Amino acid sequence: MATVKFKYKGEEKEVDISKIKKVWRVGKMISFTWDEGGGKTGRGAVSEKDAPKELLQMLEKQ
């Protein structure tokens, strides 16, 4: 499965696309949330040019 790689608060992170729940556009950035388990929700953002095609497809479906 595809993953999204991004930096959050200076830390490199990687999230499996299948865990992503919500995707939206903020200017030229793609923001998203995912389920971290245990009732926690993670947040992240990646530039439109660095976003994997699967993430962009999720954005178009909404």
Rank of each mutant, 00 (worst) to 15 (best):
A2Q: 14
G27N: 06
K49P: 08
A45F: 05
E11R: 09
S31D: 15
M1G: 09
M29S: 15
K40H: 12
K19Y: 15
D35I: 12
K9N: 11
K13V: 09
D50C: 14
K13T: 07
R25H: 09
G38T: 11
Y8E: 04
K28G: 15
T41E: 13
R25T: 15
E54I: 10
T3C: 04
E12K: 13
D35Q: 04
E14N: 06
L55V: 10
K61R: 03
Y8N: 03
K5Q: 08
D16R: 06
S18E: 07
E60T: 04
Q57H: 06
M58I: 07
S47V: 07
S31K: 15
G38H: 12
K61Y: 11
M1Q: 13
E48K: 10
S47P: 10
A2K: 05
T41C: 15
K5R: 07
T33D: 14
K61W: 04
M1A: 13
L56N: 08
Y8W: 11
A2L: 05
E12Y: 07
T3N: 05
A45M: 07
I20W: 01
E54C: 12
K40Y: 15
L59A: 13
R43H: 08
F32S: 01
E12R: 04
G38V: 10
I30C: 07
S47F: 15
I17L: 09
R43S: 10
K21W: 13
Q62M: 09
K5L: 03
A51I: 09
W24S: 02
W34E: 00
M1S: 14
G42H: 05
K28L: 05
E14H: 06
D16M: 08
K61A: 05
D50K: 06
K7A: 07
V46I: 10
G42R: 10
K9Q: 07
K9A: 12
R25F: 07
P52W: 01
D16Y: 05
K61F: 12
Q62S: 06
K9I: 03
K22W: 06
S18Y: 07
S47N: 11
D50A: 13
G38F: 08
V23K: 01
G38D: 10
R43T: 14
K22A: 13
I20Y: 00
I17P: 02
T41W: 13
K22I: 06
L59N: 02
W24T: 07
L59E: 07
G44C: 13
V26P: 09
K40E: 11
D50T: 11
K40Q: 15
E14M: 05
S31G: 06
L55T: 01
T33A: 07
S31Y: 08
G27A: 13
S47Q: 11
K7G: 06
K61N: 14
S18R: 13
G27R: 05
R25I: 14
F6M: 01
I30H: 01
D16F: 10
R25C: 13
P52M: 02
A45P: 01
F6G: 01
S47T: 06
T41N: 13
K21M: 14
V26G: 13
E11P: 01
Y8R: 02
A2E: 11
A45Y: 04
V26F: 03
A2F: 03
E12F: 08
K28D: 14
D35S: 11
G37A: 13
A45K: 15
K7W: 13
K53W: 11
V46A: 09
T41A: 08
S31N: 10
F32E: 00
I17W: 01
W24Y: 05
G44W: 12
G37R: 09
D35N: 12
D35L: 14
K7T: 08
L55A: 01
F32L: 07
K49C: 15
G38Y: 12
E54Q: 05
E48I: 04
K7I: 11
V23E: 00
K40S: 09
M58R: 03
S47G: 13
Q62H: 09
V46H: 02
K49F: 11
G10W: 02
K21Y: 08
W34R: 00
V23I: 04
G37Y: 08
G10F: 02
K19R: 03
T41R: 08
I17V: 14
Y8C: 12
G39I: 12
K21I: 15
R25Q: 12
T33L: 10
G10D: 09
E36T: 11
K40R: 05
K40N: 11
K49T: 12
T33Y: 05
K40C: 15
Q62C: 14
V15E: 02
Q57G: 06
M58G: 02
T41F: 14
E12Q: 04
M29P: 03
K21E: 14
V23N: 01
G37Q: 12
A45V: 06
E60I: 10
K61M: 12
A45L: 07
A51E: 02
E48D: 11
F6W: 04
V4T: 01
G37M: 08
I17M: 05
V15W: 00
L56M: 14
M29C: 14
D35C: 10
K21T: 10
L59T: 02
G39T: 12
T3F: 10
W34G: 00
A45Q: 10
M58K: 04
K49H: 02
E60Y: 04
K40D: 15
E54G: 09
Y8S: 06
G42D: 09
K19H: 04
L56S: 08
P52F: 03
Q57D: 08
E36W: 10
E11V: 14
